[in-house]
């Protein structure tokens, strides 16, 4: 009889020990259901931080976190518009490539004739404008800083128009950009 009951007794002993263990584990190991989720994050910050092996570098501190829609929405993919996409991209490259001969030629020829000089100024203006636009789009993103984004782009538009008028004045009243650079350079 005793030999028959031994395994049962062993199991009961093991079971009671395990139950005691489960009952005496501190309550903090099981987050209470009433604890808000956020405070759980705060409590576990140290544990989470241990996974980030590298130190934080705040080169560009993160801006306000703007989330549109609900938490787990997919990213809205805008409709492809070639004038804002590939055409614009190609246009920028054509302008940039066109500037190479126009900026290098004066080194060989000494100066440019008025038409080429005006072309250089116009291309410089467009290249500068689109370059600064890209800078604003990258560093003052619309989704995070909608107000500053709009203001920056409009300030850039105004500055480009004013600079264009100024360059026109310089081209028509003075000796032209390349010739002026040459004179100042050799002064």
């Amino acid at each position: 009889m005793a030999s028959a009951l031994r395994p049962m007794l062993l199991r009961q002993t093991a079971l009671s020990a395990a139950t005691r263990r489960a009952a005496t584990v501190p309550a903090s190991a099981f987050p209470s259901r009433v604890t808000p989720f956020q405070s759980t994050i705060v409590k576990n910050a140290g544990r989470i931080a241990a996974f980030h092996a590298s130190s934080r570098r705040s080169l560009l501190p993160p801006g306000p976190q703007v989330i549109k829609g609900t938490v787990n929405d997919a990213v809205p993919v805008p409709d492809p518009v070639p004038t804002h996409g590939s055409y614009h991209w190609t246009f920028e490259r054509v302008i940039a490539a066109g500037l190479i001969p126009l900026t290098v030629a004066p080194f060989a020829a000494g100066s440019l004739n008025p038409v080429l000089d005006a072309t250089l100024c116009a291309l410089l203006l467009v290249h500068s404008h689109s370059g600064f636009q890209s800078i604003i789009i990258d560093y003052v993103p619309k989704r995070k800083y909608p107000g500053a984004y709009k203001i920056s782009l409009w300030l850039l538009n105004i500055a480009t128009v004013l600079a264009g008028v100024g360059l026109y004045e310089f081209e028509t009243n003075d000796v032209g950009v390349t010739e002026a650079v040459k004179r100042v350079w050799n002064a």
């Binding site: 987050p31 956020q38 570098r57 080169l59 993160p62």
Partner: peptide, 30 residues
């Protein structure tokens, strides 16, 4: 340990925003 808590959408947004602030920032040179 995984407990689910009911939160309102606006609370969820706040939690997500605070979690995103913990992420490494883009030019993560190191």
């Amino acid at each position: 340990g995984a407990a689910t808590v009911k939160v309102t959408p606006s609370e969820a947004q706040t939690i997500l925003a605070s979690q995103r602030l913990q992420r490494p920032v883009s030019p993560h040179l190191s």
